[in-house]
Write a protein that binds this DNA or RNA. Sequence first.
DNA 1: TTGTATGCGTTATCAA
DNA 2: TTGATAACGCATACAA
Lengths: 338, 338
Amino acid sequence: MHDVARLAGVSAKTVSNVINGYPHVREATRAKVQLAIDKLGYELNVTARNLRLGRTGLITLALPELKLPYFAEFADEAIRAAEARGLRVLIEQTNADRARELAVLHGVRRVMTDGLIFSPLALGPDDIRLFQVDFPLVLLGERVFGSGNDHVAVDNVAGARAATQHLIEGGRRRIAVVGSHPDEPVGAPALRERGYREALAGAGIAVDEALIRPGQAWHMSVGAQLTDELIASGVAFDAVFALNDALALGVLHSLHQHRIKVPAQVAVIGFDDVEESAYVRPTLSSVSPGREQIATTAIDLLLQRIAESPGTPAGERAPARRVLAEFSLVPRQSSGAR
Amino acid sequence: MHDVARLAGVSAKTVSNVINGYPHVREATRAKVQLAIDKLGYELNVTARNLRLGRTGLITLALPELKLPYFAEFADEAIRAAEARGLRVLIEQTNADRARELAVLHGVRRVMTDGLIFSPLALGPDDIRLFQVDFPLVLLGERVFGSGNDHVAVDNVAGARAATQHLIEGGRRRIAVVGSHPDEPVGAPALRERGYREALAGAGIAVDEALIRPGQAWHMSVGAQLTDELIASGVAFDAVFALNDALALGVLHSLHQHRIKVPAQVAVIGFDDVEESAYVRPTLSSVSPGREQIATTAIDLLLQRIAESPGTPAGERAPARRVLAEFSLVPRQSSGAR
DNA sequence: TTGTATGCGTTATCAA
DNA sequence: TTGATAACGCATACAA
């Protein structure tokens, strides 16, 4: 910067002013400086600026796994939203590994970014105190509550209720659930199952536990396998609510292999509204969880925390906010939509 | 750091020495310093260290799209490899957009990282001069050659040849290709098609152009649609080489819908060996492109460039290296493997 | 509208 | 084995 200043016959401050678009710079000066910048091929040293400003303009997005389409699409949304606000995103995969999730909160992965958007999967309600941190943090998902952090989540219960009601309105009564996690009281699986039960109860339909099929990994292959087992078990069913779209794609696959017509014999609905769901045949009905809203809200909440002067004592900070995103039902062919 | 030094009764340099594991520190001193660190809850300011060292320990990985399973899995490998070498990875999605690819090379997305691993999709052979940059750069893929950069690529031609030979060895003679890009002379599609043609030529089989089906987007739905069209066209075929696994999954889907038995009537093979390929039914034969080797090689090449002192004139730098990764054929059920 | 002086928090040099 | 001092490159007060 000093070299540029010397060549342009001005001070370093003026060069800085030009680079940062400071308005009160005479046009002639600006041109001189710009010329010198181009001539020398000068580039601003961002690290020095970061040090001076005490910010890096980088935020961390910590997710379980990028390979899962839901998270890949969410990361995409988050990157766009961040970019629109002048931020860049450093993605950390935790692989639902406890040590890695800890490192994101307190270890080496914590470093160099202005804040963290975190979707925990290994850490749970017992770890609340670990979430009491002194840097900007926004949580995603449903695993950790009462930790006093800002929180953005899918409205799992209402979304699942709507999906189930949709099947009921289509005349279905024997609705199977694929992918439940019976041993996990918290998290998306439990909440989506609860929405299912609420919808049945609301319609006066008794729950048949034989229709609820546990499946740990929410992958396509698991959806197919659970459906195979369901068919083999001989339990009658006329619809399937797959707890996410990957499972639902597997369900469709299995039904197809067994020559069961969708939606004529069995209606299918998923959850997440992944891109692929609009392209498979039959197209897959789903619940769109408000991914974009979640991403933008999370970024905005984080930005507000970053803007709070770092020295603010905990007592004077804005109270923690919790946002449930607006979902929407997306009826397609698999549930009999025209 | 000065506060810690004062509390411990030492100088800031000694605190720095302790933090950085400098060996010549007396054990008693180290203990004193560590105590002061813990007592004050001191954390190193990484930005200041970055400024002083002239490095950030961060590298950029610029990819077309994270949603594509191949890139998601590649990013995963790259992150692991980087981590093992003490680096972190900033992922940039270009969406095959020219402006974004330019920004990665020369614009705002260039900033703050020690080097770039770049898989271009919009920039091509005409843009060679854009790749003459003065920061560490490793290219992935096949689009840009002769730019004088280090380069790591899938061995597309040999991999495709092996895939086709595998089908031929299984007795297939009417082998369709799904997903060609006839208007693109460079890049993976062209190279894989070339491998196909070489294999046919080697076996003395004439190429039937009606069997080669162009398809721009390499998505599952496209694979299904192209197969539908192939079947509708009435052209006889006994095997399909899908130019990647996503297409191949669509091919399987379509064949299934048309009650065509795989592999009895039609054998199928893909390319990329995506995780899901091992789980679909029938399991999908594929070509494993050496993803892990590509990731680790790219990181290692980049590290060597980073290690070259930045002032080294172009003439004295190590010559550009080009690495073709070792692929392997993965025969599964879809091509008749037991 | 532009310039001067100062410090952000660290590590390197070199001396003690 | 440890310490004093000087950068790293920038932005901010404040002065001019």
